[in-house]
Amino acid sequence: MAPLRGVRYPRCMPLADPLPGPPPSAPEEATLIDIRHVSRHYRRGVDEVHALDDVSLRIAPGRFVAFMGPSGSGKSTLMNLVSGLDRPSEGEVVVAGQSLGDLDEDELAAWRARHVGLIFQFFNLIPVLDARDNVALPLLLTDLGKAERHRRAETALRVVGLDHRLDHRPNTLSGGEQQRVAIARAIVTDPDLIVADEPTGDLDAKNAEATLGLLRELTDAFGKTIVMVTHDPRALRFVDEVFHLDKGLLLEGSDAERASEAIRLAAGGHASAGARP
């Protein structure tokens, strides 16, 4: 669907600080996201909810990974920590060499603006802005002039195959199209990391596949690192790696394999291609 190939996406956006960290020649060892013994507890009245319990994992740059698990297992919590929306109760989150714990509230917001693109289940476009202005919104946080902001928004919309809908407001777009606008908004700043919480949760089968395909192409064509929270078994065919969570714990080894198998079985034919290596 998305006419990605042939479009030269500008790799030189002013927001794209060159990532500190290992050189791209050794991608196997490279780590973009390093989660070290992270826990997240919530107080709920007298009891304490352990949304995440001592989770450690690493994600290499340029990978498309999924967090999966039953409802309430801590997927969103983990994703919020990775994207700097939330802070752990214990442990450390390091993204591209930056320990997020060292940043204060405003620095963290600025860090997100520079390095993270966010995609949500319910698109959350601004209804009074057209597609182009919605996509250009994060660029308000840069010094770019209006013309340049629009130009980049148009480029991002071309990447998601919506350059013929520039002047459309969200309510005149289909669900799938709205999600593509949201994806364009997430990539317009050329972030290193894209995080998506249930991006296909509100879409029909066809649009869900198209969205997953588009995300896949963002890693393939532009080397984006994508972290996606999903329930969708179809995702297995598109992602490089799946992290399984259950009751705040990260499943490892045979537990993780069993979880993947269960999802594949539950999905029937949908996930027949299996996860990528």
Binding site: R112, F120, P138, L141
Partner: peptide, 9 residues
């Protein structure tokens, strides 16, 4: 969503 994107206080 705007706050998440990095719009500050």
């Amino acid at each position: 969503v705007m706050k998440a994107m990095g719009f500050g206080r």
